[in-house]
Design a protein around this nucleic acid. Structure first.
Length: 914
RNA sequence: GGGCGGUUGGCGCAGUGGAAGCGCAUCUCGUUUACACCGAGAGGGUCGUAGGUUCAAAUCCUACACCGCCCACCA
């Protein structure tokens, strides 16, 4: 057996991965004899490639899944991808553009066909990348939000909500992306401040013919979007604002358009802002829309779907882009001296979350989900902590959003997605029939198709509709021949909100759904709390009558080392695959977990991954050393039962017990980074730095077993974090010992406490030895003796002499002393504790560094001791503090004076004679 | 405008009432029975500011400052 002195993940990881996949290691079957544990992976977009955010998100999930699997749960991690309507469509549109084509050029059918073949080719890239990360998903269950069965569930949900009148169709002001040419939900409009102008525009006011006019012949309104004035139908003031009493009864004329505007009064108007008068554009502004509804104003839609102006504006502006129109309109107003002034202004504008185009609020016929009724239960379960957030503070954020929830616009005017199960009859609607192709119908009477790219939307508001999963028969015409499906598709999130149960083949009743739902945890970044998490809770309660998950774990955002969010467009991304290539997936995973304090953002740079890389190598070499020793000493290990245990053996086993207990409890409370720190610290600084150092001299068969036991259990503890290297080391254990281990590491039992008798005295003694070693090293370093071998003198009782004698070899090595001699008296005392005093020869060395460090220590300690002693003399402290505290302080004071005494003795021994 | 976080050594973070800690970086020493992707040591902080509560405050309270997120119909 030869083990390389450097760990090579590039060789190990693909090999282990291959084995896992071949054995189908992570398949999860329902089994009522065991408890279930399940997580539904947030499905990445099919357009996605693995980025650091995914790496962090999925590592957290994998740690929990692997941990629970080892604890004996039937652990299901459900993987899958999201069709990501707009995002995917945009990608393909860009591809088409390379051929000089638009999607309209090839038509809907062909476009969808290409989308599917694109997804077959690239859509599972990210799944393959997740495998490289070590994700232990049940890959055979991989789902896609547009799978046939999943699509059925989506339709069922639409129909069910519609039946309950929780889905409705209405003309409403929505966020419109003029580039994607679709409606967006409120959540999909990201508000960002941009630099703009606030324009003060004069609207002329005319007196009624018979009255005189003592006031200026215009009013001034302020706006950031002047072009929308072409759709104004009113101006508004606050009813309490007496400044404009004179306006009542006058005629206000909209410039350029020359339309008469109504004057309305509403509390919503802030008299302090601008001039206190607001122009009202009901079809292009959310507030104005409300006012329009309230006061029954005219709604004039002035824009086409690409945000060029339509025929409802004066001729000069028709077909001009909104920003071009703005410039030209401003010029015209300027010319007519109708602009009073303009001032720089920060405009808070909505941006399309997919293409970053500025949203145009626009009135439009869309489909909505009534959210208030759905939110009711979803609020309760969080208020009552049936669903808990980690960190807790997100509970408030969630609730605040839920209390103020608005209806959800779910229809999208794109092609890639689940088409609305809504049908119109051409037979009953001549307008529509005109556009149905009779020719194609002859070929397939059951499949009428639109003749051209005519958009049903343009006449939909006049059409009666039928909601149905399959093509329905028209009640009037008694035939399905003229039935045509709505051209809109559903918001992507309208399918992903069903993820926790639709992936388990809901609505089909089945064992797995019953067993694995509700899932245990949901792990996500805060960005999709409203998009996804909140909606899943609502849909779970609505359709499963049960919460979808119990714990929501929200991790931070991945940033670069300057704190900027990583994004492709900023070019500051660190590619997880490159890190895997350079350092290994284990190193990537471990480093991420170490850096991600629960819920806080993660700052990354290439060098941050060295933690994981170095740790892998350390583990590798410790293992290598143990096996070298076993081989050198010709030891056969066929069981892990220990007969005789020395103090260091008992000590390390006890340390392992503590570590097991702590890691288990950290993992159970989702403090993954604490757990990772613990295994790191135990393996490196307890096991390697002390135990292995100790046993080097005396590698008995018994100690071979103890170290093998520690190694094996460390690998188990490590496995959730570093699955590859731990699995590989288990393989080495199998290959190089006679231990019978049947399973993969990931399926072995999670470590338990090792029952062991250890007396308090043993622990005290070994700690006294460790302290002595550290102190000797300290003093030697201060004296500049560094690595020089000195003669150590020990003064202690016979009984403790035996302790030193028994452990002499390693004590000598760890203190770098050439010999240890027992003395009845010491010439001077360099270190003493309850059990013994020590001295060693210092020959002619420079004492100055040592003495000054000694003086400093004494000064510090004196300072603290003074405070403690003052406290102990303070009556109010003695009266008011608890007994425990007072006793603690007394102990503290005692040990401090003892330590001070010791230091002062040293000082006397070393201080240059004056 | 509202809400929520944060402010602790050069950097990233722990510490939620009783002697300021960890990792990285820095410095010194070191080829020693695996590992230089290593080992042994050292230096470095009046815990954002100002008040208050308390025998005792990094920790609790109140203001303020700065940073960051989220929500919101101030045109």
């Amino acid at each position: 057996m030869d083990i390389a002195s450097k760990y090579n993940p590039k060789e190990v990881e693909p090999k282990i991965l291959q084995k896992w996949l071949k054995d189908n290691s992570f398949s999860a079957k329902s089994d009522t004899k065991h408890k279930p544990f399940s997580i539904a992976m947030p499905p990445p977009n099919i357009t996605g490639i693995l980025h650091m955010g995914h790496a962090l998100n999925n590592t957290i999930q994998d740690v929990l899944i692997r941990f629970k699997r080892m604890q004996g749960y039937r652990s299901l991690w459900m993987p899958g991808t999201d069709h990501a309507g707009i995002a995917t469509q945009n990608v393909l549109e860009k591809e088409l553009a390379k051929e000089g084509l638009k999607k309209e050029d090839i038509g809907r059918k062909e476009f969808i066909k290409r989308l599917w073949s694109w997804r077959d080719k690239y859509g599972s890239t990210i799944i393959e990348q997740l495998k490289k990360l070590g994700a232990s998903c049940d890959w055979q269950r991989t789902r896609f939000t547009m799978d046939e069965r999943y699509s059925e569930a989506v339709k069922d949900v639409f129909i069910s909500l519609h039946k309950k009148k929780l889905i409705y169709r209405d003309n409403y002001i929505i966020n419109w992306c003029p580039r994607c040419k679709t409606a967006l939900s409120d959540e999909e409009a990201a508000h960002k401040e941009i630099d703009g102008w606030l324009y003060y525009i004069k609207y002329p006011v005319f007196p009624k013919p018979e009255t005189k006019n003592p006031h200026p012949a215009y009013i001034v309104v302020a706006t950031t979007r002047p072009e929308t004035m072409l759709g104004d139908t009113a101006v508004a003031i606050n009813p309490k604002d007496t400044r404009y009493d004179w306006l009542k009864g006058k005629t206000i004329i909209l410039p350029v358009v020359e339309r008469e505007l109504r004057l309305i009064e509403d509390e919503a108007i802030d008299p302090e802002f601008g001039t206190g008068i607001v122009k009202v554009t009901p079809a292009h502004d959310p507030v104005d829309f409300m006012l329009g509804k309230k006061y029954k104003l005219d709604f004039i839609n002035i824009m086409n779907d690409d945000a060029t102006l339509n025929k409802n504006v004066p001729n000069d502006f028709i077909d001009k882009d909104r920003f071009q129109a703005r410039r030209e309109l401003l010029a015209l107003l300027e010319e007519r001296k109708l602009i009073e002034r303009k001032e720089p202004y920060k405009v808070n504008a909505g941006h399309c979350y997919r293409c970053n185009t500025i949203i145009e609020p626009r009135i439009s016929l869309q489909w909505f989900v009534r959210m208030k009724p759905l939110a009711k239960e979803a609020i309760k379960v969080v208020e009552k902590d049936k669903i808990k957030f980690y960190p807790q503070r997100w509970k408030k954020v969630y609730l605040n959003w839920m209390y103020n929830i608005h209806d959800w616009c779910i229809s999208r005017q794109i092609w890639w997605g689940h088409r609305l199960p809504v049908w119109y009859c051409g037979g009953c609607n001549p307008d529509l029939k005109l556009h149905l192709s009779p020719k194609l119908e002859e070929l397939d009477p059951n499949n009428p198709i639109l003749r051209s790219e005519f958009n049903i939307r343009s006449i939909a508001s006049n059409l009666a509709y039928v909601v149905s999963k399959e093509k329905p028969v028209c009640k009037k015409c008694k035939t399905a021949n003229w039935m045509i499906q709505d051209s809109d598709v559903l918001d992507t999130w309208f399918s992903s909100w069903l993820w926790p149960f639709a992936t388990l083949d809901w609505p089909k009743k089945n064992k797995d759904l019953n067993y694995f739902y509700p899932t245990n945890c949901l792990i996500t970044a805060s960005e999709i709390l409203f998009f996804w998490v909140a909606r899943m809770i609502m849909s779970g309660l609505e359709f499963m009558k049960e919460i979808p998950f119990r714990d929501v774990i929200i991790h931070g955002t991945v940033r670069d080392d300057k704190g900027t969010k990583m994004s492709k467009s900023l070019g500051n991304i660190i590619d997880p695959l490159e890190i895997i290539d350079k350092f290994g997936a284990d190193a990537l995973r471990f480093s991420l977990i170490m850096l991600a304090a629960s819920g806080s953002d993660v700052y990354l740079s290439d060098s941050k991954f060295l933690v994981g890389r170095n740790f892998s190598n350390k583990i590798w070499n410790a293992t290598r050393f143990i096996f070298l020793k076993i081989k050198d000493n010709n030891i056969r290990i066929d069981n892990l039962e220990f007969k005789i245990l020395d103090i260091p053996d008992k000590w390390i086993l006890k340390e392992l017990n503590t570590t097991v207990e702590q890691i288990t409890s950290y993992l159970e409370s989702y403090s993954l980074n604490e757990a990772a720190k613990k295994i790191y610290d135990f393996f490196w600084h307890v096991f390697c730095d002390w135990y292995i150092e100790i046993i080097k001299d005396n590698f008995t068969p018994n100690r071979a077993k103890v170290s093998m036991y520690i190694l094996l259990n460390s690998m188990k503890l490590l496995h959730p974090f570093m699955p590859f290297i731990s699995e590989e080391i288990l393989q080495l254990i199998k290959d190089n010992t006679s231990l019978r281990i049947e399973k993969n590491l990931g399926h072995l039992d999670w470590p338990k406490e090792y029952k062991l008798k250890i007396e308090k005295k043993d622990i005290e003694e070994i700690n006294a030895l460790f302290d002595s070693i550290k102190e000797i090293r300290n003093i030697k370093a201060d004296l500049g003796l560094g690595q020089k071998k000195v003669k150590l003198e020990v003064k202690t009782k016979v009984e403790k002499q035996n302790l030193w004698q028994d452990n002499k070899a390693w004590l000598q090595r760890l203190t770098l002393t050439s010999e240890i001699a027992f003395k009845n008296e010491l010439e001077r005392v360099l270190y003493e504790n309850f059990f013994w005093s020590l001295n060693f020869d210092t020959e002619s060395v420079d004492m100055s560094v040592f003495v000054s460090s000694l003086n400093k220590k004494i000064k510090n300690l004196e300072g603290v001791a003074k405070k403690v002693n003052a406290r102990l003399k303070n009556d109010s402290f003695l009266k008011q503090a608890s007994h425990d505290i007072v006793n603690k302080e007394r102990d503290k004071s005692k040990s401090m004076s003892w330590e001070l005494e010791r230091l002062k003795k040293l000082q006397r021994a070393f201080a240059p004679a004056k």
